[in-house]
């Protein structure tokens, strides 16, 4: 029982990281109906920026905030410079642009920072918090920060005029434009926010897996799965999906089939869920008009 509890909690911790990245994917999906395959690499790149800042002697929390700002600007810049020109291209052409971004960011990071692993500090204390021995303080902190991001996003979209404008631009671009919302900039803003959320995920995962240009490959895959299981158009679903995928992955790896095949089996289960509920657990079912 002890081991079981331990695995579930460890799963929740990694699940929190999947959830943050899934949230970033959902952000961009809601605004543009594209799945950003480069999301993980954007997060990785901004985590390297954080590493550089700390390497230059900045303390953790100022670096954290500064990195969020850099990530935001990077997201806006990518939307404006790279994605905007293919706005009207076929969907698969846009997918190719995302894949291109993925390999470019990965390769450039490897070029600048080399492929050797780098340790990344955690902002949370070393000693167990409140006598909890099942989870490290970093894991508890990562979950806390994920939830904090979710609540902040909810408040932003629900209670601020800018959040309302962004929702309007995503739901009905034509009408939004008619009431004077600058739809193009709202999309860019959405990209910026998503990049910021991704940066948080990157800085939370880096202390666990070490900093490395390929660190986000697996995480992105799980985040993608989490977003789809939860329903790609539902932020709460995506976060729940993230925790679900994290726990599932851990339990399967520990008790059922071992670490070799856990990725495969987790994916098979996810596909199984989708076969029963094709738009995810909490996604809206789309009714097509004939």
């Amino acid at each position: 029982m002890d081991a079981f509890l331990f695995q579930v909690l460890a799963g929740l911790a990694t699940g929190g990281i999947y959830a943050s990245l899934a949230l970033a994917l959902v952000m961009i999906y809601q605004a543009t109906h594209h799945v950003n395959f480069a999301q993980g690499e954007m997060a990785m790149f901004t985590t390297y920026i954080a590493w550089s800042l700390m390497d230059a002697g900045l303390p953790y929390w100022p670096t954290f905030l500064l990195t969020l700002m850099v990530a935001f600007l990077l997201g806006v810049a990518i939307e404006r410079l790279v994605i905007r020109p293919v706005e009207h291209a076929p969907v698969l052409a846009v997918v190719v642009v995302f894949i291109a971004l993925l390999v470019i960011l990965n390769s450039v990071t490897g070029w600048i920072y080399t492929y050797t692993l780098k340790p990344f500090p955690s902002p949370f204390p070393e000693e167990p918090l409140w006598g909890i021995r099942y989870m490290s303080p970093h894991e508890i902190g990562a979950i806390g920060i994920t939830l904090l991001v979710l609540v902040a996003l909810y408040l932003f979209f629900r209670f601020t005029p800018l959040g309302l404008a962004m929702r309007a631009a995503a739901q009905n671009p034509q009408s939004a434009r008619l009431v004077g919302i600058r739809v193009g900039w709202m999309l860019a803003l959405g990209w910026g926010l998503a990049a910021g959320i991704g940066a948080v995920a990157g800085m939370m995962v880096a202390p666990i897996v070490y900093l490395d240009p390929n660190m986000m490959g697996g995480v992105l895959l799980y985040a993608f799965a989490a977003a789809l299981v939860g329903g790609i158009d539902n932020p709460w679903g995506a976060v729940l999906g993230g925790f679900l995928v994290g726990v599932l992955e851990n339990l399967l790896g520990a008790f059922v089939i071992g670490n070799e095949l856990k990725l495969s089996v987790a994916l098979v289960i996810i596909v199984g869920v989708l076969l029963v509920r094709p738009s995810g657990l909490f996604g809206t079912v789309h009714v097509t008009r004939v």
Binding site: V82, V86, V96, A100, V103, N106, S107, W111
Partner: peptide, 17 residues
Amino acid sequence: KAAPWAIFGIFMILFVY
């Protein structure tokens, strides 16, 4: 030689554009 995949990515984007 340093970042071949970056160049490959740029080619991909150029072709799509």
